[in-house]
Simulated assay, not measured.
Amino acid sequence: MEAFKHNQSAKGPSLFLLSEWESRYDRLNTGFTGRQGGVSEGHFSSLNMGLHVKDQDAAVISNRRLLTDAIGWPFEAWTCAEQVHGNRVWQVTEADKGKGRNSLDDVLRDCDAIMTNVPGVLLTSFYADCVPLYFYDPEHDAVALAHAGWKGTVQQIAVETVRAMEQAYGTDPKALVAAIGPSIGGCCYEVDGPVIEQVQALLTGLSLTQEEVESMLKQSEDGKANLDLKEINRQIMIKAGILPIRIELTEWCTGCRRDLFFSHRKEGGLTGRMASWIGIRER
């Protein structure tokens, strides 16, 4: 069953909600945006969430406000990172709340994962094919987001995020629930030699069977391969100690469904960005 339920109202932003999580944990709010229902124009039409893609800043900020209004959060809660395709994790404190919401000038620098146990902080991250990873520790009311392109995946950003939550909040990986959101699927993501070599090295270290490796890295005779980043990140989450039954895995592919999502690869790099979000509501 698909975990991310599409919710498109007549006038509001296109949202993909982790409805089961929200019904199970009453203070948790989390999901992923689509590409429709915003105010951006041209290549960024219409719900572009990224300030870094040369869209009009005013349009992006308006789109971000559309999201916070739709989910019932104050815009001042919006907090985001720079994202540099690494594996650094930033612990978001009360003092970080709101950074990056209006400008790149105060965005959280040089990190691709952010975590917090501060109620009222809305963590956000940006995508146009890369894999959004969600983490929630219900025992300590701590949440995290991680941005995993192929580079972050090879650097095992999911493992780094779990370790950071263990150190900061006392998180037990077995108590975590996790989710892997809409991103490019193995059906659409073709890579070449240098990427294949690094992914092969990663998969070797995960102690997988040859059949499992071949299902995630389907090589062709021309020296290229189709890469299933979503399943690879699921395996990395399992390596980090998260129980398989507590990991939600989406079937949405950003490459196949360009009517619903932006796709950097399928649109030649000139496109908008979706946002993931997660936060614990204040009491």
Rank of each mutant, 00 (worst) to 15 (best):
E231Y: 00
Q156Y: 02
V92G: 09
A58V: 07
F32C: 11
Q56S: 04
T116P: 08
A128L: 06
G72F: 10
G241M: 14
A275D: 03
Q198S: 15
Y169I: 06
G170D: 11
Q167H: 12
Q155R: 14
S276V: 03
P182F: 14
K99Y: 10
Q210S: 15
L15K: 01
T204N: 14
V118H: 09
D96R: 08
A70Y: 02
C187Q: 15
S40N: 11
G34N: 03
E197L: 10
S40A: 15
I184T: 07
P138N: 12
S19N: 15
P194N: 10
Q198Y: 03
D222G: 15
I184G: 00
V143Y: 00
T209R: 05
A240T: 01
L206Q: 09
Q83G: 01
F75L: 08
E231C: 01
A168P: 03
R24M: 08
K151C: 01
D141S: 12
A144C: 07
V121L: 02
Q155W: 02
S46L: 05
M274F: 10
A179F: 04
G50P: 07
L18M: 14
F4Y: 13
L47S: 02
I280T: 07
M1H: 08
D172I: 05
G50Q: 07
D259H: 04
T171S: 05
Y169H: 09
A58H: 03
E94Q: 14
N7Q: 14
I196N: 04
A178T: 13
W277D: 06
S23R: 13
S40M: 11
D259G: 10
L145E: 00
F261W: 13
C80A: 05
D172A: 04
M115P: 04
Y25N: 03
T161P: 04
M165S: 05
S103F: 01
L217A: 02
E166S: 06
L206Y: 07
I245L: 12
F32V: 06
R273S: 11
A168D: 04
E248K: 09
C187P: 01
V107E: 11
C188P: 09
P138L: 14
I232S: 02
V177F: 12
P182N: 14
D55G: 13
Y169R: 05
D141M: 10
G170P: 05
G12L: 06
I232Q: 01
E211M: 06
A10L: 15
G100N: 06
R163L: 06
S46I: 05
T68Y: 07
I242F: 00
E190T: 09
T204K: 13
C111L: 07
S62D: 13
Q8A: 08
I157L: 09
R35Y: 03
V159R: 00
N48T: 11
H6D: 09
S183G: 10
E248Y: 03
